[in-house]
């Protein structure tokens, strides 16, 4: 920018329809690329600044707040049909910095960076003193509950052996003393009835994911498990590179839970 030249930007209303369109395009972009956890929905637009872009177009620089829904990111349910996680279930919010290009009436995301954090324990307990709080996903009781639930599910399955993709959510419930868990699974090429060594099972080329909710209740002399899983429709094979094709854009990795990125919330190229 030449010295003394004012930078050309405008600050529209945060609830301006065009601002909201840009924010919603970014939320869709994030939900389609994140491979762990739950879909998020737009809650509030905190800041917006719109820059003129040369030679054409405008860049929306946005700060938004999102809220976690109850739909897992692998769940094909449209975001509009997903329920927002309520505060009594220990809600999780996201804070996102975004840059969205509007050109020829189309929005495309240039940059998205989000941090998510659960509501404070004080807030949850003030609303609902007996509500269970979120538990660490690597807690041994959580991991045990998921193992028991997935084993029980596979034991009842007549089809594929399902492998754990990720533990998504966990809570310790005081009465009756139990562990509530939610986790994602994927079908393998082993039959559940015949599997001898799960380590030798491979995810299907045409991925089939599922999402399970389970409760492991502690009892005198043992434990009880209740598990329900919802299977999603299979996901088509990603296009195979052909001889002569350009190198795939590394900024848009194919979502593959078998190869989860280290930071799933940082998506898109940085500009």
């Amino acid at each position: 920018v030449p010295a003394g030249t004012a930078l050309a930007y405008r600050e529209p209303d945060c609830d301006d329809p065009e601002t909201e369109q840009a924010a919603l395009a970014a939320v869709d972009y994030i939900n389609n690329r994140v491979v762990r956890g739950y879909k998020h929905t737009l809650n509030q637009i905190d800041k917006v600044r719109v820059w003129q872009r040369r030679p054409m177009g405008e860049v929306f620089e946005l700060e938004i707040d999102t809220l976690e829904t109850t739909c897992h990111v692998l769940d094909p349910t449209p975001l509009a049909n997903c329920t927002v996680r309520q505060p009594m279930q220990h809600a999780v919010e996201g804070d996102c910095d975004l840059r969205v290009l509007k050109q020829d009436g189309q929005f495309s995301v240039l940059f998205a960076k989000c941090d998510s954090s659960p509501d404070s324990a004080e807030d949850v307990l003030r609303l609902c003193p007996d509500c269970p709080l979120l538990a660490p996903l690597n807690d041994t009781k959580v991991v045990h509950a998921v193992d028991v639930a997935l084993t029980a599910f596979n034991a009842q399955s007549n089809g594929s052996y399902f492998q754990l993709v990720e533990i998504s959510r966990a809570q310790f419930v005081p009465l009756p003393q139990s562990t509530y868990v939610e986790f994602a699974v994927a079908a393998t090429d082993c039959a559940a009835k015949d599997v001898m060594d799960p380590a030798k099972c491979n995810l299907l080329a045409e991925k089939q994911y599922g999402f399970c909710k389970a409760t492991l209740t502690e009892k005198v002399g043992g434990e009880d498990v209740a598990v329900t899983c919802t299977m999603f429709q299979t996901q088509p094979l990603p296009p195979q590179p052909q001889p002569g094709d350009a190198v795939a854009d590394p900024a848009v990795p194919a979502p593959s839970p078998a190869n989860l990125p280290a930071d799933p919330l940082l998506v898109g190229p940085v500009v």
């Binding site: 600050e11 209303d13 945060c14 601002t19 929905t41 509030q44 905190d46 809220l67 505060p87």
Partner: peptide, 27 residues
């Protein structure tokens, strides 16, 4: 409404353009 450039026009209701509305609830 026409006013002298040095005199501010009567202010209407103050609208804060940002942050925008909360669609669900604030965490």
């Amino acid at each position: 409404k026409v006013v002298q450039p040095s005199i501010a026009a009567a202010a209407g209701p103050l609208v804060r353009p940002c942050p925008g509305r909360i669609r669900h609830f604030k965490v």
